[in-house]
Design a binder for these strands. Structure first.
Lengths: 205, 205
DNA sequence: ACCTGAACACCGTTCAAGT
DNA sequence: ACCTGAACACCGTTCAAGT
């Protein structure tokens, strides 16, 4: 019953679930996560607001799906940063710095999306285990680069995981404080400053 | 027109602004920041919901006031941690660790309140400059201890501030990842683990 | 000065009913 | 299988009116 002409189909949207996620993301980027309402989404897509519930259990479940899309995209971006020509031939520590910088770049470029991804209502409840999947992949990327960068330390698996968490915590803290304007840093200089703060951490043991 | 008997005064609450902040905090601790509604607060206090607007410009302004109370309390707690007997005679690095641990302890003990304090809607807009006041005091505490702990490095003011931000970012990241259950750590062991992660950062230079 | 009552324009969620 | 329309129980905010 999908219609291809310009007339609005009254039945069968095609892929409403996807349309909802995409429209939600657009609204999040435009006006922040609080601006998302199911009724507004439905209005924009041209569908009855109750139709949402055929595809997502409730509003939070839709946001969780948007968050999952975000994590997947972020991990792809991180992977791509390691696949660049300049990264391939770089020293291990430099590769690690590039990886973390790509994480922060994504978060600063898509602050509202990142906020949803880190949203406590999604993560604290344990209701959305599928979120863990792309995240664990990101941690694995980190682990690999950390083992290479700190090979001199002869890291056990546990110590390597400690380092992965430590740098992740720091990167997230950096994002939070920069976005919250707790740190005054010119938009053009955040990368330089991030690396200034990061490098002395990696040097220690 | 304030009445002291058990009969409910219908006019003049006494200190409605304070009552609103306290009730909001209670609701936040019980059911999370999203559970706060002005109408529910008014209901609990026994006042018309429109009365809120005599004291706060809107809902966000009330939350900002609750956040400010939180920052003030947190900085008091941090100050107290340095005033303990054990801290007075401790080595500078130990004092710094104690200070940061007290920060994390507050955040993990009052996660919902901490979330409000860090809420992006308060911090990104610049609408509530009074929030910066207690926060800046906290940063000053950090700065003093960092200068003492890393005196060997002969820190300039700028480098000391870098270190203060770095450890703050890390502490905030630790809180976020622990609360988001991204890090599996037993409630009784978070302190030990925090310090395990923190100390190698402080050693480097 | 401080609070009330009513009104306005929204929400999320549910459910019988339609195609 | 997928969507609609109406209903329910809420919201935040505004404003004339009360004491």
């Amino acid at each position: 019953v999908v219609r291809t002409s310009e007339s609005r189909p009254t039945y069968h949207h095609g892929d409403l679930a996807r349309a909802l996620r995409e429209e939600a993301l657009r609204l999040i980027q435009e006006a922040g996560p609080d601006a998302v309402s199911l009724r507004e989404l439905a209005r924009r897509i041209g569908v009855n607001h109750a139709a949402v519930y055929r595809h997502y259990e409730d509003k939070l479940a839709l946001l969780a799906a948007v968050a999952e899309d975000g994590w997947t995209k972020l991990v792809e971006t991180m992977r791509a940063s390691l696949a660049e020509e300049a990264a391939k031939s770089a020293l291990p520590t430099d590769r690690l710095v590039r990886l973390l910088t790509s994480y922060v770049r994504f978060a600063l470029a898509h602050p509202a999306h990142y906020r949803v991804m880190m949203g406590p209502r999604l993560n604290e409840t344990g209701r959305f285990p599928s979120l863990e999947d792309p995240i664990e992949k990101g941690v694995t990327l980190l682990l690999t680069e950390i083992k290479a960068a700190r090979a001199g330390g002869n890291l056990t698996e546990d110590r390597a995981r400690d380092w992965a968490l430590r740098v992740w915590m720091f990167a997230h803290g950096y994002v939070t404080l920069v976005l919250g304007r707790r740190v005054q840093v010119k938009p053009s200089r955040w990368e330089e400053y991030f690396q200034t703060l990061l490098l002395p951490m990696l040097g220690g043991r």
